[in-house]
Simulated scan of single mutants.
Amino acid sequence: MKKIERRVFPARELRVRRSASGGATLAGYSAVFNRPSENLGWGDTEIREFIAPGAFTQALQNSNCVAVFNHDPNFVLGRESAGTLRLRQDDHGLLATISLPETQLGRDLAVSVERGDIAGQSFCFTVARDKWTRNKENGAATRTILEIGELIDVGPVTYPAYPDTDIARRSFERFIRSGNTGHRLKHFNHRKNYLKSKRMIIK
């Protein structure tokens, strides 16, 4: 079973380009390197996540990623194999360029991005390699994603939901156990249940 994760980034770098023929292209970074995430912590533990430069190298060689709106596979905007989605990794992150379909969805989405109504860009992925570190003074933990295993989808979202961190939580629990710290993991489950009750996580 795939351990699928999803992250959301601010869409301030999301741009629409219109052609003379009336078509529209949506371009922006689905992921940014070396930028700390919001606090993904559970209980009293602060946890930040980073994506290492070059993390998408292997995934881009094998992916047939799709672009979707609001995580919904019924709202397909483009696909790599069709040439309507182009992904490129550079020093800043993962740049996605989508040739928007000339449908009502595509036209409405272009207008919404231009107006600033669309507030996030997400990507769905699996992790091949990551690394955890812990600050001995304050207990804060850092997860660095070193290699993306599979890139499943990218795309704009209406609002940046709290990221689905269930897989990251289990990875952190393994890290804690391997360090034999004796940390009480019930705090993490309490934090997860609280976020669910507030509808602050995707699932």
Rank of each mutant, 00 (worst) to 15 (best):
T144H: 08
T103Y: 12
R35E: 12
S81C: 10
S81D: 15
R170L: 15
I167C: 05
V32L: 12
T103D: 10
G54A: 13
R79P: 05
A55W: 11
D130F: 08
V111A: 11
A67L: 05
T142C: 09
F9W: 10
K196S: 08
V127N: 01
R6Y: 11
R6A: 13
N64P: 10
H92C: 12
N193D: 04
R174N: 03
G41I: 13
I98K: 02
E80I: 13
N74F: 09
G139A: 12
V66F: 10
A31W: 07
K131F: 13
R107I: 14
R191L: 09
H92L: 14
R6D: 09
L77E: 02
D153E: 14
R6H: 07
D90I: 04
G54L: 14
L195N: 00
F188C: 03
G116D: 15
A140T: 07
F123N: 00
A96F: 08
R143G: 06
A67D: 00
D153N: 11
S63H: 09
V76E: 12
T165S: 09
F123T: 01
S37R: 07
I148C: 01
N62W: 05
F50P: 13
D164I: 09
G120A: 13
N62M: 06
T133C: 06
V32S: 07
G28P: 02
E46G: 13
D153K: 03
L40V: 02
H190E: 14
E150A: 08
T158C: 11
L185Q: 03
Y29W: 08
H183R: 02
R107K: 15
Y194L: 05
Q89K: 04
F123H: 10
R18W: 06
N74W: 06
N135L: 14
L87T: 08
S21C: 08
L40Q: 06
K196F: 04
K136N: 14
R107L: 13
G120V: 06
E46A: 15
R18A: 13
R6M: 15
V154Y: 01
V113L: 04
W132K: 04
R174H: 03
M200E: 11
H190K: 10
L100W: 11
Y29L: 08
V111P: 00
W42K: 10
I148R: 04
R88F: 12
H183W: 06
W42S: 09
Q104H: 11
T97G: 00
I202M: 14
A128R: 13
R184N: 07
R184P: 04
S197L: 14
I167D: 06
G116A: 14
I167L: 08
R86W: 02
L94W: 00
R184V: 08
R18Y: 04
H187I: 11
I148W: 08
V16P: 00
A20F: 13
A119Y: 13
L105N: 09
L26C: 06
I118V: 15
A161G: 14
S81N: 10
L94A: 00
S21V: 11
Q61D: 05
T25E: 07
W132H: 09
T144K: 07
D108Y: 10
M200K: 15
D90G: 02
N74I: 05
G28I: 09
G182H: 09
Q89F: 06
K3E: 11
E173P: 00
A141Q: 14
L95E: 03
F56L: 11
A27C: 13
T45C: 10
I201W: 06
R18M: 12
V68P: 05
K2F: 14
E150M: 06
D130E: 08
L14T: 00
L195E: 04
A67E: 00
R107T: 15
